[in-house]
Simulated assay, not measured.
Amino acid sequence: MPVISWEDPFCGEGANCFRIGTDTEGNAYIAVAGQEDRPLTDSREALRSLILEIKAGRADHLL
């Protein structure tokens, strides 16, 4: 498994905490806080697009 640099956990109102991380190969990761050993992975650009869509309110139906 690659070495992942994790950001501090982000927690929503219901204490649903997740973490975002990256590695040196250009991959991005997202995981439930405390379950970083089982992340979802994709490119940094895909993760950036997801975050922008969530912030714009276009992905609320997924949450």
Rank of each mutant, 00 (worst) to 15 (best):
M1L: 11
M1A: 12
M1T: 15
P2D: 11
W6F: 08
W6C: 12
D8M: 12
D8C: 04
D8P: 13
P9N: 12
P9E: 07
C11V: 03
G12W: 04
G12N: 13
G12S: 07
G14K: 13
G14N: 10
G14F: 15
G14M: 15
A15S: 12
N16Q: 14
C17L: 10
C17A: 15
F18D: 03
F18Y: 10
R19T: 13
R19H: 11
I20K: 03
G21Q: 05
G21P: 05
T22G: 07
D23F: 06
T24C: 01
E25N: 05
E25S: 11
G26M: 04
G26I: 02
G26Q: 00
N27A: 01
N27H: 08
A28P: 00
A28G: 14
Y29A: 01
I30R: 10
I30D: 05
I30T: 13
V32R: 00
A33Q: 11
A33E: 14
G34M: 11
Q35P: 00
Q35G: 11
Q35E: 12
E36I: 01
E36R: 09
D37Y: 03
D37F: 00
D37L: 02
D37H: 12
R38V: 10
R38Y: 02
P39M: 06
L40Y: 14
L40M: 07
T41E: 06
D42L: 13
D42R: 00
D42C: 13
D42K: 00
S43V: 01
R44P: 01
E45L: 04
E45G: 08
E45F: 00
A46M: 07
A46Q: 09
L50Q: 09
I51H: 06
L52N: 04
L52F: 03
L52R: 06
E53K: 08
E53T: 07
K55P: 02
K55G: 06
G57P: 11
G57R: 05
G57D: 06
A59R: 15
A59S: 11
A59T: 04
H61G: 02
H61P: 01
